[in-house]
């Protein structure tokens, strides 16, 4: 039997930017306009076949309200990747992404893979998406425009995360010292592949 690679992804971001909706769209193919606020966190899994490798994504969805952030470490402590979500109609939620990045830099595993999702891209953007993409590139993260409502960009986001985590795990398995391995990743990813042509919000 083929071995399944477990990948732990944690979703972080401001309240009601659509973290839960992204996960439910991805895992259950459902969407609700009135997703209830997440208190603390929930956990869902998705199995996928990635170029012949079986992967189980263990996705941790977390609470957005600021006072819950002190609980963050128990989720991202041993995470392979963090998906930082903001709402493109809410500028402040992008600043929250930046503060999460700072926190992860200090507190999370040092080789954690980062991805940023600008959610609700079925609506008019209040943030400069070029800026977001530049910022993402500067921290070695990918950036995707997503819409849980219209099912845009979500599959791509999680596939990108799975691909990069697998590459990193492979590099580790090939016994490359961790420090140079991370740099290798950076070289591969910098500049990050241009985001898929925006299907909306442009």
């Amino acid at each position: 039997m083929m071995r399944t690679v477990p990948i732990k992804v944690v979703l972080l971001g401001d309240g009601r930017v659509g973290k839960t909706s992204l996960v439910l769209r991805y895992v259950n193919a459902t969407f609700s306009e009135q997703q209830t606020p997440t208190i603390q966190a929930s956990y869902l899994t998705k199995r996928l076949n990635f170029n012949g490798a079986m992967v189980t994504l263990a996705i941790w969805d977390t609470a957005g309200q600021e006072r819950f952030h002190a609980l963050g470490p128990i989720y991202y402590r041993d995470a392979d990747a963090a998906l930082l979500v903001y709402d493109i109609t809410d500028k402040d939620s992008f600043d929250r992404v930046k503060s999460w990045v700072k926190e992860l830099r200090k507190m999370a595993p040092k080789d954690i893979i980062l991805a940023i999702a600008g959610n609700k891209c079925d609506m008019n953007s209040q943030v400069d998406l070029k800026d977001s993409e530049r910022y993402a590139a500067s921290i070695g993260s990918s950036h995707f425009n997503t819409s849980a409502k219209s099912n845009i960009g979500i599959e791509e986001t999680f596939l990108d995360i799975a691909r990069r985590v697998l590459e990193q795990k492979k590099a580790l398995a090939e016994n490359v010292p961790a420090s140079t391995q991370r740099k290798t990743m950076v070289i591969i990813d910098e500049p990050p592949p241009p985001p898929p042509p925006s299907k909306c919000c442009s």
Binding site: G15, R16, S32, Q34, Q35, T36, P37, Q65
Partner: peptide
């Protein structure tokens, strides 16, 4: 925050 959550409480 309350205004954000009203419509999302046991919808």
């Amino acid at each position: 925050q309350i205004d954000h959550d009203l419509a999302r409480t046991f919808p």
